[in-house]
């Protein structure tokens, strides 16, 4: 198993090299002149040239690339032009916020979608099947900013059940000591229940927003995959040997149906991570999505570069986790590894 993971990690190296090259070229291809932006609207031509020189943007591309890689090796992603703060620190502090939100959204979504999909497949054509279809279609057809605003309107403005949708904690709580960066976990570890409650209250609405959006692919994939497996011959054998429906559905059918579901989960997770920019905007969430968009709008290439690189690494790690999960579920994959 360890050898398999090791081998799998080796194949990641070329991917990462490719990602580094592509991010570098991509940010250089962005429209807008960072030097002009940084120098300000009133700057003279000479001032802009001076800024360009300071930023190293006057050097030929290969030289810029070498410098970029050298900095990267030291963990230096450069400084943001607009805030002046190092990109690495920004990302390290903002990534856990995004990750906590996305992960929780995915977990909630899974907790609803997987059982719903199984039930829909087992009782194909019943009311539960139709409910599953309606819920999933509705969820995916409402844009996240709309669901988010609707939830804020109903639960904060009208009902007043939810705290004000600004940031990860309410104004009176202070962030727990950073351990994982996940407020829920950190506050529990340090035993600070007050902060835990506050963080959870802030999380509920954005998490529900994301969960509603990601219900559809997971529920539909679970249903389709379960239907295929339920029609297969080994399920017939299981039924013909009198196994009870629980064993047939869970041990025999669902474990086999999980493989495509796991693949879908990986895809849903990665696209949620990138696409929760809007949710972060609506809930004033200090995540990396909103950070990257602001930087992009200002032609601030270092944060964009850092963001793309982080996402790529996350994606690679995610795929690795999925591959390992595959091996755990399916013995046939283990052999080929």
């Amino acid at each position: 198993m360890l050898a398999t993971i090791g081998k799998r990690l080796l194949t990641v190296i070329p991917t990462l090299i490719g990602v580094v090259i592509v991010t570098f070229l991509l940010t250089r291809a962005l429209p807008g002149d960072p030097a002009a932006y940084f120098a300000g609207p009133a700057a003279t031509k000479e001032a802009i040239e001076q800024v360009r020189k300071n930023l190293g943007l006057d050097k030929p591309l290969p030289e810029q690339f070498v410098r970029y890689v050298r900095d990267l090796a030291r963990g230096d992603l450069g400084n943001s032009l607009s805030t002046g703060r190092p990109v690495t620190t920004e990302i390290v502090s903002r990534l856990p916020a995004s990750a906590e939100l996305t992960l929780l959204g995915l977990i909630v979504s899974m907790a609803i979608a997987v059982p719903l999909g199984i039930l829909a497949a087992v009782k194909q054509g019943s009311w539960i099947d139709h409910t599953c279809r309606v819920v999933a279609t509705a969820g995916v057809s409402l844009p996240v900013f709309f669901t988010g605003l609707l939830l804020v309107y109903v639960f904060y403005y009208i009902l007043g059940w939810s705290p004000s949708p600004i940031g990860r904690l309410d104004a009176f709580a202070s962030a727990p000591t950073q351990i994982t960066g996940f407020f829920l976990i950190d506050s529990l570890v340090t035993g600070n229940l007050e902060v835990f409650r506050s963080a959870l209250a802030q999380l509920i609405l954005p998490v529900v927003t994301l969960a509603i959006f990601s219900l559809a692919p997971i529920a539909r994939m679970t249903r389709a995959s379960m239907l295929a497996v339920l029609a297969s011959e080994f399920v017939r054998t299981a039924r013909a040997s009198g196994l009870d429906s629980r064993t047939v559905i869970i041990t025999y059918a669902f474990r086999n149906a999980m493989l495509p579901v796991v693949t879908t989960l990986g895809m849903v997770f990665s696209f949620l991570l990138g696409a929760n920019v809007l949710v972060e905007k609506v809930f004033a969430w200090p995540g990396i999505g909103s950070y990257a968009v602001e930087a992009l709008l200002q032609s601030d290439f270092a944060p964009v570069q850092g963001f793309v690189l982080t996402m790529a690494v996350l994606y690679v790690v995610l795929n690795l986790v999925i591959d390992i999960l595959y091996g755990v579920i399916d013995p046939r994959v283990r052999l080929e590894g």
């Binding site: 080994f234 040997s241 041990t251 086999n256």
Partner: peptide, 15 residues
């Protein structure tokens, strides 16, 4: 009880 055609498919592949 029953035994089936294509025995490989008649068994749960991951158990």
């Amino acid at each position: 009880s029953m035994i089936f055609q294509s025995p490989r498919l008649a068994l749960n592949p991951i158990r």
